[in-house]
Nucleic acid binder design. Structure first.
Lengths: 337, 337
DNA sequence: ACGCGCTACTGTATCGGTACAGAACCGAAA
DNA sequence: TTTCGGTTCTGTACCGATACAGTAGCGCGT
């Protein structure tokens, strides 16, 4: 059987194609009675609804929003926080009649998602600021929102107030009486934290509190993956002669690595070592002892990102959102021995 | 400035629009020299590349594959296994020049992702077999692959050999000498496990091993979310007068709930209670004690699903894949006291 | 009887590409 | 010289919808 299009339905009912289109897309443009007849005929012919591709071309928008990541997803998702953000974004978009399309790097020559995938806007989540993908988005003139990244001129942004969060984390240790504090932060490929918003802000926050207390931290770092890297970096930190009595970490996963290292070295947490994580991921509650950490509301972040991209697509001025954090004190911190 | 299209470039270079199209999409159709000139002109005019929407309409395919889920993503992603699968799918698709679009339920009236989103095929991941979304996919005649679901006639499927995995888990407990075993499985909204492939197969596997040993299990169940439900269900199970000496669980998250309940009740794991999880999610290694569990290779599952959808889209016969599992013995199991 | 505003429907011109069949040209084999 | 195959480029006909302006008919106030 031939493909069913608006035209075939129009012919069947004896109206113009435009009227059939309106029956589906602008019900207020025709009488209810005629609309019923058209829909019935469409159903009878096995019509599914206006073809999304054709509609996208004619309307000039595709109804989907891209999410740009520099890393492969498998890596990104090792941390539950990323996937939770993701989920929140997808749900919020769906409620606004938009679909989420993932733009992850492709190994296939000639296929560049940020250039070749139809979308009306994009969320830029974890990207090098000078990535070619970003350049394609710019070139297409697509509305963008950058999340957990440095602001770019004229681009909407959604960020977490990581500096305050980290400051609270470090202050908590200071208040408990710690005077020797370690920092386990993220080591980026460039060796330069300044372009990574969370890494830079958290560092500034930790140092702000420690500086005020006259404490010079011992800094260690490790890459985002694999998970074992955190444990090894933590071992080194804890085997130093001037072993700190407390450690603040870039994430809960890093903190879990410190916990493992402490266990291996026979250190009691929090009696011998206090640990503070970041994010309040599920991990923070599952681990033993449970982790003191800085909570960020990832669901809210996702919704904020969606609100921002929708506003930007509507031509409204680019908002800059900064979301609050809160310290969650659990079992992994205590005064020093 | 007016929008740059193939035609503007053609006019600029003095060739036909078709030749410009070929310069981008079929480089072998024209001389290298002319192609260079065309690309240079395109670059100069600020052309980004063939418009994805127009290309989708003309070619008859959109270059993206949908992932259909019945639940909201936020819920689905509470389990790391789902997001890992997801990530693996996205990465594998990208390597094949395809994008991944998420089809999650929308609260917006008139927007039905499975009907309204452009795609060339769909992976059906967690869906009621009689969902309307599935019906739309069918009606569109879209190639499908169902994952972790019962096979449907003529639809490709990718499943894990959950029955064998569960049997191995239960057999492990039998071999350790347990004679009183609890099962904490998934309770579905319908109260009927038969339509949920993993739930049914795991139950059949557990029972197969236990039946052979003449053991009648004590069965408890709880919903997939929230996470606390597992702990509560586990408490009930462990407070029975005939408390089992071991429990097999539907997932590692469930097992973690049992672990928490045991802790609350002052039971030592594995001395007083053995626990076996399922999936070998990160949780299984993080928890204390570490969890004995059944490993499934989610990355392989994702790649298999992608291979299957690509084959199906190419018109090849629908494959039925069944992936192996393996028992991973860690600290949470031991002989009964 | 006339003009007015409304609702209900239609005609035409895109949207920006791709497929496919051919035309023009050129060197080599017969 | 003719024929033939191959490369390179062109013309035309879609792909399946939507936007927007326009027309027809109708009730209504005057």
């Amino acid at each position: 059987m031939a493909k069913v299009t608006l035209q075939s339905i129009a012919d069947r009912v004896g109206v113009s194609r435009m009227t059939v289109s309106n029956a589906f897309s602008r019900p207020d443009q025709l009488s209810a009675e005629l609309r019923e007849r058209i829909l019935a005929a469409a159903d009878e012919l096995g019509y599914v609804g206006p073809d999304p591709a054709a509609r996208a071309l004619a309307r000039g928008r595709s109804g989907s929003v891209g999410l740009l990541l520099n890393d492969r997803l498998r890596q990104t998702f090792e941390d539950a926080i990323a996937s939770e953000f993701f989920a929140s974004v997808a749900d919020a978009l769906a409620d606004n009649g938009l679909a989420l399309t993932l733009l992850t790097p492709s190994s296939r020559a000639g296929f560049v998602p940020s250039r070749d995938v139809a979308m009306d806007g994009a969320l830029v989540y974890i990207c090098e600021p000078d990535s070619t993908d970003l350049a394609w988005l710019d070139r297409r003139g697509l509305p963008q929102v950058s999340v957990d990244q440095n602001k770019r001129e004229g681009v909407a942004s959604v960020n977490v107030d990581d500096r305050s969060g980290a400051r609270a984390a470090a202050q908590h240790l200071v208040d408990l009486g710690h005077r020797s504090v370690g920092i386990l932060t993220l080591s980026t490929s460039e060796g330069d934290l300044s372009h990574n918003f969370p890494a830079r802000e958290r560092m500034l926050g930790w140092r702000a509190a420690l500086d005020a207390a006259g404490i010079e931290p011992i800094v260690a770092s490790c890459p985002y993956q694999p998970t074992t890297a955190a444990r090894e970096a933590a071992r080194e930190l804890l085997e130093r002669p001037d072993r700190p009595t407390a450690v603040v970490c870039f994430s809960d996963a890093f903190a879990a690595g410190v916990l493992q290292a402490a266990e291996e070295l026979g250190l009691e947490v929090p009696a011998d070592l206090s640990i503070v994580g970041y994010d309040d991921s599920p991990l923070a509650s599952y681990s033993r002892p449970t982790l003191t950490t800085v909570r960020q509301d990832v669901a809210v972040k996702g919704r904020a990102a969606v609100d921002a991209i929708i506003a930007t697509m509507a031509g409204e001025p680019a908002p800059d959102v900064l979301l609050p954090t809160s310290l969650v004190v659990r079992e992994s911190t205590a005064p020093p021995a």
